[in-house]
């Protein structure tokens, strides 16, 4: 069985710094990490491999700058077998649609036949959650989003639960299938020593647009149907009232009740 995991390297969210004047993100010196929600996809792949044992191979793919190789090494440290980095100036500025096109071209070319593609629910930087289902659509796969549990995986079939509004939907799909997972699915492990050694030594091929045989007109900023025309800083601070309850509990709570009435909330 061949499993493909898609991971993205993102700026560590709690370290994001903004240039207050220009309203842009300061990228210099900001640490990067594996998109936290992709670690659940990696973990689930590794668990499947541990459960089924021999014959399961996990291929992890990321598109990004050279530096994204670090993310791929950490996936190997966690138990993935092979990693590929898609990196080319021609990929720069891709929106989700083009990212998904590029990833699916790479999957076709380098992995060939596969049984399962796992990805995260969304990336913490772009936060679109679109890339997974778009890859599924490009590859014409059945798609299971928001998967919170894999119940069974046998006889070329998967039964899984999807966390949707109001509960969990139990669904069955043939393989191959694309799955995006939510945090509920597992608790990701930390890498162990032998994993780290393996990661250090792993060869990670860097693939270009040409290597994956992609149509250049569909790549990067040029190929992207959507355009970011402006970036600005949201007004987060509200001009709210803050009241202390110290020695004034009754007054503070009454004030709150009045406020709620004023806002027609009660």
């Amino acid at each position: 069985m061949k499993i493909v995991v898609l991971i993205k390297q993102v700026p560590a969210t709690d370290k994001v710094k903004m240039d207050e004047e220009s309203g842009t993100m300061i990228r210099d010196g900001v640490e990067s990490e594996v998109n936290p929600l992709d670690l659940y996809a990696v973990e689930e792949a590794v668990r499947i491999k541990e459960r089924i044992g021999n014959g399961v191979e996990i291929h992890v793919i990321s598109m990004g700058p050279k530096k994204a190789e670090e993310a791929l090494r950490s996936a190997i440290a966690l138990g993935c077998d092979r990693a590929y980095l898609l990196s080319d100036r021609k990929f720069a500025g891709s929106d989700t649609w083009v990212t998904a096109y590029t990833l699916s071209a790479a999957i076709r070319k380098i992995v060939g036949d596969f049984d399962l593609i796992l990805c995260g629910e969304r990336a913490t930087d772009g936060e679109t959650g679109q890339v997974g289902p778009e890859v599924g659509a490009y590859l014409d796969l059945p798609i299971l989003t928001y998967v919170s549990k894999i119940e069974t995986l046998q006889d070329r079939k998967i039964i899984a639960q999807r966390a949707v509004e109001g509960g969990h939907e139990v669904v069955e799909s043939p393989l191959p299938v694309l799955i995006s997972v939510v945090k509920e699915i597992n608790t990701p492990r930390m890498p162990n020593f032998s994993g780290k050694m393996k990661a250090k030594k792993a060869e990670i091929p860097v693939l270009t647009a040409e290597d994956i045989g992609a149509d250049e007109a569909r790549l990067g900023l040029k190929g992207s149907p959507t355009r970011v025309v402006k970036i600005f800083r949201p007004q987060v601070a509200r001009k709210g009232t803050v009241v202390s309850c110290v020695g004034n509990l009754q007054g503070a709570v009454d004030g709150l009740v009045d406020f709620l009435e004023e806002k027609a909330m009660i």
Binding site: V243, C245, A252, V253, L256
Partner: peptide, 19 residues
Amino acid sequence: FNVADYGLVGDLFEVVPLL
């Protein structure tokens, strides 16, 4: 409190029952 329209500095176990 930076995003609150109305904030109470206090112990929730006192505030909520009274509210």
